[in-house]
Simulated assay, not measured.
Amino acid sequence: MSPHPLTWLYVPGDRPETVTKALASGADVVVVDLEDAVAPDRKRYAREATAERLTDPQPLPVHVRVNALDSPLAAADLAAVAALPGISGLRLPKVTAPDQITHVAQTAAWAEGGAPPLYALLESALGIERAYAIATAHPALRGIALGEADLRADLGVRHDRGLDWSRSRVIVAARAASLPPPPQSVHPDTRDLEGLEASCAHGRALGFLGRAAVHPRQLPVIERVYLPTAEEIEQAETVLKAAEADRGAQALPNGTFIDAAVVTQAHRTLSLAHRR
């Protein structure tokens, strides 16, 4: 996986031909969904088709989102897919407590030992309240993110900005736990690319890194917004050049003050710009 994945493309697990197309879509990570994208009477087929499709290593990272951990389907999902050679991670929906992460880490071990990388989706008020405890529950947990559709319903939020506090809470919890910045939740209107762009810009300002998608047409928009601009790259290069010449705090000719934190941010900008 790229050290800075920006696009996470969800595809239904009961449509293996779509999984194949997704692998050639340009997404950084493909997420095969066994949960919300699959009708109840197709759950078993989705699990079996996914297990068959991911028997071999894949050309890019593939995660599987299993069914909710408190459902009877989750155990069967984990047993079927956790040890597959084609799996790079498991996405766990509707997580509300750290012991859920611990339980999965202990039971969904790969054949050679150890748990696969786990990613928790926080989709309720209770999950948000416990964000840091969840984020630090087990070393196998490699990331947390929001599931905004369920969270919106749980909170009764009527305006998108009503989720900003929860978004910031999850971003802070992830960074406090030394996890990567979370990706944004999906933008559900696949044709509203202008709205997607504006939403991504807002998410980037909050501290998200990248975004989940449900259609390949969303991928270029997400990547464009989240990659550093030419101006940001130039500024980062200027900062690092100045810092190399004088390691103390200083001000650039344009008035920008440089200290250790600014230098760190400049390194992050260039690392993201050269991520592939």
Rank of each mutant, 00 (worst) to 15 (best):
I134A: 10
L90N: 07
D154K: 01
A109Q: 15
P116A: 14
A140L: 05
E129N: 04
E129S: 12
L118C: 07
L126P: 00
R130P: 00
E148S: 15
A109K: 13
P98G: 11
D154H: 06
S124I: 01
I134P: 06
A83K: 09
G147W: 07
R130K: 13
I87E: 01
R91Q: 10
T102P: 05
A111R: 14
S124T: 14
L146E: 01
A76Y: 11
L151Y: 07
A131I: 06
D150C: 05
A82M: 04
L155W: 03
Y119D: 01
L141N: 03
L141P: 02
D150P: 06
A133N: 09
A120H: 08
A109F: 00
A145S: 14
V81D: 05
I128W: 01
A80D: 12
A120V: 02
L78T: 11
A135F: 02
Q100K: 11
G86K: 08
A79M: 09
L141F: 01
P117E: 14
G147F: 07
A83P: 04
Y132F: 11
R91H: 10
T107W: 00
E129T: 14
G127I: 02
P85D: 09
E123M: 09
G127N: 07
Y119R: 11
A131G: 05
A75V: 13
L92N: 11
T102Q: 15
A83C: 03
W110I: 00
K94C: 02
A135D: 02
E112P: 00
I134N: 06
A120T: 02
I87Q: 02
E129W: 04
L78E: 12
V81Q: 03
Q100N: 09
I144F: 02
A105N: 11
R142A: 09
W110F: 03
P98N: 12
D99W: 14
L122C: 06
L121M: 14
E123C: 08
A111N: 11
A75N: 05
P93A: 10
R130M: 05
A83V: 00
I128A: 02
L78G: 08
G89T: 10
D77R: 06
W110C: 07
D154I: 00
L90V: 10
A97F: 02
P117T: 09
R152T: 15
R142T: 02
G89N: 04
T136A: 14
E148R: 15
E129D: 12
D77N: 13
G89H: 07
I144C: 03
E112Q: 13
W110D: 06
A111W: 12
A108G: 10
R152H: 08
L118T: 08
L155A: 09
H138W: 04
Y119F: 15
A137K: 12
A80I: 06
R91T: 12
A153V: 01
A120W: 04
W110N: 06
A153E: 14
V104H: 06
I87M: 01
P117A: 12
G127Q: 08
T136D: 08
A75F: 04
L78W: 05
A105P: 10
A83H: 15
